[in-house]
Design a protein around this nucleic acid. Sequence first.
DNA 1: TATTGACGTGCAACCGGTTGCATGACATGT
DNA 2: ACATGTCATGCAACCGGTTGCACGTCAATA
Lengths: 332, 332
Amino acid sequence: MTGRKDGVTISDVAAAAGVARSSVSRAFTRPDMLSPETVARIKEAAERLGYVPNHTARALSTGRHGNVALIVPDVANPFFPPLIRAAQSEAERFDFCVFLGNTDEDPRQEDKLLGRFAGQVEGVVLVSSRLSDAQIRAHAAMRPLVLVNRDVEGIPRILIDSAPGVSEAVRHLAEIGHRKIVYVSGPPTSWSNKQRRAAVRNSAAKLGIEVETVAAPVPSYEAGKEAVGAILKTGATAAVAFDDLTAQGILAGLIERGIAIPKDFSVVGCDDVLGAATYPSLTTVSNRSVEAGTVALSLLMQMLQTGIAHDVRHMLGTHLVIRNTTTGFVKK
Amino acid sequence: MTGRKDGVTISDVAAAAGVARSSVSRAFTRPDMLSPETVARIKEAAERLGYVPNHTARALSTGRHGNVALIVPDVANPFFPPLIRAAQSEAERFDFCVFLGNTDEDPRQEDKLLGRFAGQVEGVVLVSSRLSDAQIRAHAAMRPLVLVNRDVEGIPRILIDSAPGVSEAVRHLAEIGHRKIVYVSGPPTSWSNKQRRAAVRNSAAKLGIEVETVAAPVPSYEAGKEAVGAILKTGATAAVAFDDLTAQGILAGLIERGIAIPKDFSVVGCDDVLGAATYPSLTTVSNRSVEAGTVALSLLMQMLQTGIAHDVRHMLGTHLVIRNTTTGFVKK
DNA sequence: TATTGACGTGCAACCGGTTGCATGACATGT
DNA sequence: ACATGTCATGCAACCGGTTGCACGTCAATA
C-alpha cells in the first residue's frame, strides 16, 4: 500500500514540458495568455503525468477555495434534506463544495460551527438560525451570508411564506363548518412559528371564528400526540399544527381516543413533508424548501462573484394541499 | 461593508508579542517547546488581536486539512440523516469537518464527487455505494476510505447486519400462525437488499413456511402501495418489506382495499425509520445507522492517525421491534 | 531604418502557516 | 574555570500554487 500522495505538482509538469511553473499555472487558469501550442504541450504533459491541481494551495494564494457552508438545525428533520440536496446540486453547478453543519437546535453549537468553518468557506447559508439578530449580523459582517427562514434586515434572506397557505387552511376549515379551531405551536424562537400563528389568528378573526393556541415546544410526533389532551379540552373541532410531524402525532392521539377523522375532527399540517403517507392522508400547507435551497445558494454565488450584498428579501409563497383529514367533516 | 478578510496572521501576532513567527506557530501546536511565559504572552496577543489560525495555510504545509467527505445516495431518504448526524458529531470530536456529498443514486455522480473532493479531504466514508468493486478499490488506493453497507474485501467496512432481525421477524410471523409470506424486495444492486432476501428465505426454509418475492424496485411509499396487488395475488398472509417506506405504502394499499391490519394481514418493515408514527404502528427491524455513522468515522480517524488500514469488517446486529402490524393476527 | 507596441514567457515574491537546524544563554558536572 | 548538555528561540526553506512586472522577440508603423 504505497500510494498516499499523488506527488505530481506544477513543477513536475513544468519540467516535463520545458516551461516555467507560472506557464503551467496559466495554462489552466488563463490559457488565452499563452500560445496555443504551449498550452497544448503543457496539457499533454500534465495529462501524461496525471497532474491534478491542488485546491488547497490554490486557495492559499487566491483566497478562494470554492467551498460554502450550509448550517441547519437538524438534518434528521424531514423538512431539511430536500433543501440540503437542492443547495448542494446548485453549488455544484458553480463547481463549489458544500460543508454541512448540524446544530442540534443549539445556538452555541451553531456559533461554534460557524467559527470552525470560517476560513474554510467563502460563504455561509444559515437555515432556520436560532442565533440572535446581533450574532447573525456579526457573522454577516465577516463573510457573505444568506439566511433561510430568518428575517434580519439588511441581510439577504429567503423566506418561505406560509401565511397564504395557512390562511387558505383556516378558510377551508371555516367553509366545511368549523367554528372554533386550535393552533398547535412549534419552537418559540422559530420565525416560521411566529408567522404561522399570526396567519391563523388573522384569518380566523376575519372569518369570525374562534382560535386557541396549544403549545408543542418541539416539532415532533411525540409532542403532537401529547398535545391532544389539551387540544380536546379547548372544545375546538379542528387543529392546525406547526408542522406535519406534529400533525401526525395529533392524528395518532385522536385515533387512539376513538375520535374519527375527518368525520369528528379535522387536522391540518404544515410543510407537506409526509406526502400522502399518513392515514388518513394529511391536509397540509405546501412547502418550498427545494426552491429555498436553490435560491439561497444561487444568491450566495452571486454575492461571491459580484462582491456586493444587496438587501434581498425573497418570499416564496405557499398554498393549501387538501387531502383526507379535513374534507368529510360532519358538523354537529 | 469593509470587513471581508480578518487579516490577522501569525506575523501580526508575532510582531505584537515580540517573537518570531515560528514561536507563534509553536505556541499553538507544540506549547511544550516554549517557556510557559512566552506561550502566555503569545496567546494573550493572539486573543487581543482576534487571531484565528488559517486552516488552508496549515493544510498546505502539513498536508492535513482536517476534512473528511461523507457520500450518501440520497440525503432525503430517512435512513441517512441520523447516520450523517452521528458521523458529523463524531468528526467534531476530532476537530474534523465533514463535506457532504449526495449522489442521487447515480454511480457517475458518485465518481465525480469523489474526484471533486479529492485533495480537499484526508479521507472518505462511502455509504451504500453504487460503484463497482473495482472503482471502489481504485479510490481506496488513493486515500483512506471506509465503506458502510458495502462489502468489498480488503477495505474497512461497517455492515448493518439485518439478518438477525429479519430472521426474528420470520420466526415471529410463523409463531403467530402465518404459513406463507412475501418478501417485497428493494433496489437490486443494494447489498442490504440481497442480505435481507437471503435471510427471509433461509429462516422460512428452516421453519418450513413458504416464501415468495415481489419486486418494488424503488424503496418508496408509492412503490409499496403498487406492490399490494401482486402481494395479495400470492395468497400470502404477511409481508416483510425491504424498508419502512415500502412497508408504509403496503399498509396504505391494504387498508384501501378494506383489509384489516393486523387481524387479516401482517406487515413488517425494516430500518425503523418511522418510529411508531404509522397507523397501526409498524413492526420492523431495528436500525443501527447511528452506530454505523459513528463507527465509520472513528475508524477513519484511526486510519488517519495510524496511517494503516486494517481489513476491518465490522458487523452491527439488529433485532425485531414488535409493534401493532403483526400481533393481533387471527389465523383462519 | 529606427520606433513602437503587442505578445509570449520567465522571474521572483507572495499567500500563512510548519519545521529542521543553528544559535546563544544558562546550568551542570568535574 | 572549563567542557558539556539542555533549553528556548530565531532563521530560513518549504508546502503548491498565483500574479505583477520585466524582458526579449517580432511585426507593424513612421
